[in-house]
Design a protein around this nucleic acid. Sequence first.
DNA 1: CGTGGTTAGCTTAAGCTAACCACGGTGCGTTAAT
Length: 509
Amino acid sequence: MQLEQILLDRFGFTAFREGQKSIIEAVLDQKNVVAMLPTGAGKSLCYILPGYVLEGSVVIVSPLLSLMEDQVQQLQMIGEKRVIAINSFLSYEERMTTLQSLGKYKYIFVSPEILQSTALKKQLKKIKVSLFVVDEAHCISQWGHEFRTDYLKLNEVIKELSTPPVLALTATATNKVIYDIVSSLGLEDVSYHLHSIDRPNIAIHVEKLNTIEEKKSKLLEWVKTLQGPGIIYFSSRKWSEHISAYLKENGISGVSYYHGGMEASERILIQQQFLNDQIQLICCTNAFGMGVNKPNVRYVIHFHYPSNMESYLQEIGRAGRDGKSSIAILLASPSDEEIPQALIGQEFPAIDELEHLLHLINEQYSQGLAVNEEYILSRSTLTETQWRFIKYQLEVNGWLEDYDIMRKLEVDIIIKSIETVIKNRLLYKKSKLHEMKRWLESITCRREAYLSIFNETLTKSIDQCCDLCSLQYEGYTKSTEFINPVHFKEWKNELQLIFKVGGKSAKSS
DNA sequence: CGTGGTTAGCTTAAGCTAACCACGGTGCGTTAAT
């Protein structure tokens, strides 16, 4: 009752959306909470509202600067001024001033990286942190092990802050990923609020083609017929640019590309143009999407498929946030596996590279020097990600702190240990890719197939389900009037009555 | 890691092989002490 009043007073909503209330109650009950809500279900309310009830501040760990800025703006729009994002957008002076008066902020947005700053941690310890939020918590599992290892150090930060209650929020996680989140954050007595990851208004279509050229012309065909706006995913920057140009050459207007190799200003511009309907179609890599809350995306096409099902579901989940009918199309060809395999392989250092590097570090240690990263990296061919992965392994075992330990253990033992970690991670990632490939080979309902990966089952039949069930493509095209799903259902029911055909049983044909 | 394209170098000087290289994504943070 009281919560509904706050909801009305502060946010102007009369009722909670599904799942929100019980999450908020658990948070206010000082429990550790893991919440999985589908995209667009209003996750941020789950920490914003408790902020008004709890004393002290709410710290929110966010994976992207743009996401932080968005959230800050949204809070300011509802009249909340006690909000700050601590990141590299702040000048040195601004940052120092902010840190001195940290307690006056109710909502403090941070990146996992900046949480490693001792100056920030020192100030955070002085104020009362009443809730520690990890937004997009699947990043712990998806990025923490190799790409952004500071995600795996959040548990240390939580301990340093005298273990405030934690709220981990995500839209897409398998049981294993949830286990990974909970154990990595060191959470005990967890209150789980896991809702279905399914998005019934998104139809699924997979199309097999023999060559890349066939894929290109099929893509053009779809883009010409489908009602936009749309997003097309690629696994390489080059391809996203190439197809963007190809579509333009073939008379498609309002197309742009987007990937991580572009200038930040250009990326922001294109994202804004897409959000404002000035661009109808984005050819992009997986850099595009997180935090893109565009309600009317009508289709997502995969020109290349991602390396695991979680990523796939996150990407198609960017369609149809307004709840209206949308479609996800995946174009597959035999050579598609090459890129994801290569990407997985290059995340990890080769064993001889690892050995070479550790001997270099050892050399520096034995001269009594601290590890000079610049020097070490200049003498190896490791990528930044590979080095960060090794560095984390050394840190987490205490090998980077104390060079006496390094001598005693012998480099060989360290190499063996890291080698084992690499092998296990490779096995895991390859099995995830294999799971993705198996899904592509589904012979029964694709939705049921991915739900089973997430330990779910289909509870009610869906009219526009997938290419293996029954799927009418007319509802997604430009030429025809948009078919309201409700009317469509009635029409279909009538047809079923006439022919006495069962809904779901029809798909086995 | 694994594939596909190019080139150097060999030679029954026009065609073969071996060696080499380019290719494939995601983002933070970069500046001080009581």
